[in-house]
Design a protein around this nucleic acid. Sequence first.
DNA 1: GTCTATAGGGCGATAGAC
DNA 2: GTCTATCGCCCTATAGAC
Lengths: 190, 190
Amino acid sequence: MPRWESDAQGRLERAALELFETQGYERTSVAQIARAAGLTERSFYRYFPDKREVLFAGHELVAHLVGRVEAADPGLGPLEALLTALSTADEVFRSREFLLRRVKVIADSPALAERDLIKLADIAEALVPALGRRGVEPGTARFIIDVVMALSRRATSRWLADPDAAFSELVAQAAAELREVVAPPAPPVR
Amino acid sequence: MPRWESDAQGRLERAALELFETQGYERTSVAQIARAAGLTERSFYRYFPDKREVLFAGHELVAHLVGRVEAADPGLGPLEALLTALSTADEVFRSREFLLRRVKVIADSPALAERDLIKLADIAEALVPALGRRGVEPGTARFIIDVVMALSRRATSRWLADPDAAFSELVAQAAAELREVVAPPAPPVR
DNA sequence: GTCTATAGGGCGATAGAC
DNA sequence: GTCTATCGCCCTATAGAC
């Protein structure tokens, strides 16, 4: 018999999401989350550096993307490399149920929205050296990555809304949309 | 003779930037900023809802961009409309000196970096209805805006680094770069 | 675990300008 | 009198130090 309940971190995460949903982020204290998970406030900070982080644990996505970019065919250009990497991102997604709940909570709290954005920025930053190893200058790399982040946002929002869509399809769709926006198919007829 | 020194907000902003530069954001307390500006901590919060906001006052850029998008030639597509608007953004920029100091301070503090990102996201959000009035669907609008935000980031970082470059030129340059990335000029020869 | 500085909100008091 | 900027003192919660 274990001396403590196992998966303290997971319990804190689930308790936090639940409480944020029902009471809102601001009106939920760290002590309350800890209590709901059967821990003390002090223990909460052993697992998470601050209150917001409880919703942002796990760096699987960054690692996944960086790995895929590095593993991509060296003949691919930076955009293509990023898009192939992004296409498989759903391999490390959590359940749509969970992500939907999380997105709603984040959207309802400015503090969490801020944290969400910087997490995305961290991903973008981590991808710069990955493109660097493919011979892309940091400035150019960051620009292309930012464009792909826009594309990822588009694909993800559709994926959350449509239970039947394949993520890789939505990435391809967004990429097509990008091409259309940048170089409209209809040539100027005059 | 006025009972109080004028421009309390400006004094707080200047004192804050100065202190953040010399001591760092974390090691500067609100009380210290207020004292340096000849006010009390409580008064600080009359001007700024929180400590971070002292570096992010003023919404001129949002208003400027929205206005320019709305005023843009109705015949322009959404991307072109956004780019013309962005090209004149430097009209509401503060001095490069000030912006450089500010950028450095923000980059040195995770808390300020988060706030900076959400301010950009706020601009993006504000532009959605502006494109909506041009007949663009919200989802598509947000996607195009996000691409332009990436482009804006590229142009701005170059503008900060190069004292002689014209901002509108840098926007055009980034736009050309985007076209090149999305539709490489060299067709597949095989 | 305990202690503490700080963020930041609530509410009321004060004191000039009008 | 009202309006408005400022201060004072309360409070809780976060998060870091010890």
